[in-house]
């Protein structure tokens, strides 16, 4: 998992979104790699750019938003930002599987569940009619749907929320993708169903070795499934590293604040829940310096002038990087060059 070549890599990605009167820099110079078989969690609050960054290069942003993307997003030998829409659609089907928070955004309400899966398997995995049907039934079974032969002939509205979520995961897997992109896959689900779906994602990953990019705001979900974490704040990476490094030894003031504001359900002692004062910045009119400066307790004059560089503090195959020179200097944390 560690030294393998990345199967999806994003470099210096900048995404501007245009509405009629304003433009917003939703993603501002983000780079990251995804290697085979790993789970990368992209963490951030509303407006941090986590969804735009992940779905933008795949052409999956809502219609009606004008998008301007710069930088690079490479997968399967192609540059996603410059290939044609037909090639992108092909790559999206065959190489990327996508699951959303709302299963009905992926499933066609007018078609039965099974045939939707079979069509996907025919188109992208090149199966015959009969083989595709069998594959669809087995995908439903693998996704934990009881009585898959019967469910094959059901319409989406005949299934519960948890079952639809499973059907959508089955649909995303039908083309045997290399990378599974999961945008808040459990946010709308109840606790016990969320536990089922996370277990399913862990299992798929173990068995198929596909990479998972998980977009979430739920730190508990990150801790239970992710190998690596990227923390986004207002369109920029604040901190990244292994889940162990980032969640147990956070360094960036934002990451620390974010983690302190999440009560640990399983800790013995009750640590008072801290809060981060203030609100995330308005991304329509951004200041040049650190995006977190307004809410940061360590803020210095320099923070408001220059964008803090992402510096490596532990060099390994999954380096721990932090975009805050102030905290590094204060705490005497050495920077690897």
């Amino acid at each position: 998992m560690s030294d393998a070549q990345p199967i999806y890599s994003i470099e210096d990605l900048v995404i501007d979104l245009y509405a009629t009167t304003v433009s917003v820099r939703a993603v501002d110079g983000v780079s990251f790699n995804v290697r085979p078989g790993e789970t990368v969690a992209v963490v951030g609050e509303s407006g941090s750019g986590k969804t735009v960054m992940t779905l933008g290069p795949l052409g999956l942003l809502p219609e009606g938003v004008t998008v301007d993307m710069k930088g690079s997003a490479r997968a399967d030998g192609s540059e996603l930002l410059s290939i044609g829409s037909r090639q992108l659609s092909d790559l999206r089907g065959r190489y990327f599987g996508v699951i959303f928070q709302d299963p009905m955004s992926a499933l066609n309400p007018m078609l039965k569940i099974g045939p939707q899966l079979a069509r996907q398997a025919r188109r992208f995995a090149g199966l015959s009619h009969e083989a595709a049907r069998k594959e669809a039934v087995s995908l439903l079974a693998r996704s934990g749907i009881p009585d898959p032969e019967d469910r094959y002939n059901r319409y989406p509205h005949e299934m519960s929320g948890g079952m639809l979520q499973r059907a959508m995961i089955a649909l995303a897997l039908a083309a045997r993708p290399r990378v599974l992109i999961a945008d808040e896959p459990t946010t709308a689900l109840d606790a016990t169903v969320q536990a089922q779906i996370l277990e399913l994602i862990r299992q798929i990953q173990r068995e198929d070795g596909i990479a998972v990019v998980l977009i979430t705001h739920d730190i508990g979900v990150v801790a239970s499934v992710a190998d690596r974490v990227i923390v986004l704040y207002a369109g920029q990476v604040a901190e990244e590293g292994t889940a162990m490094d980032v969640l147990t030894r956070p360094v960036h003031p934002y990451t620390r604040g974010l983690l302190a504001s999440v009560p640990d359900f399983r800790a013995d002692e009750r640590a008072a829940t801290r809060e981060i004062p203030g609100l995330p910045p308005n991304q329509i009119r951004l200041e040049p310096g650190c995006r977190f400066a307004e809410r940061c307790e360590l803020v210095e004059a320099g923070c408001r002038q220059h964008r803090p560089p992402l510096q490596t503090i532990s060099a390994s195959t999954s380096p721990h990087r932090v975009a805050c020179p102030v905290v590094l200097k204060r705490e005497g944390i050495a920077v690897h060059v």
Binding site: A223, S224, V262, R266, A267
Partner: peptide, 10 residues
């Protein structure tokens, strides 16, 4: 079903 934010516990 409630996950802990601490990967060591998870």
């Amino acid at each position: 079903a409630v996950p802990s934010p601490d990967p060591r516990i998870e």
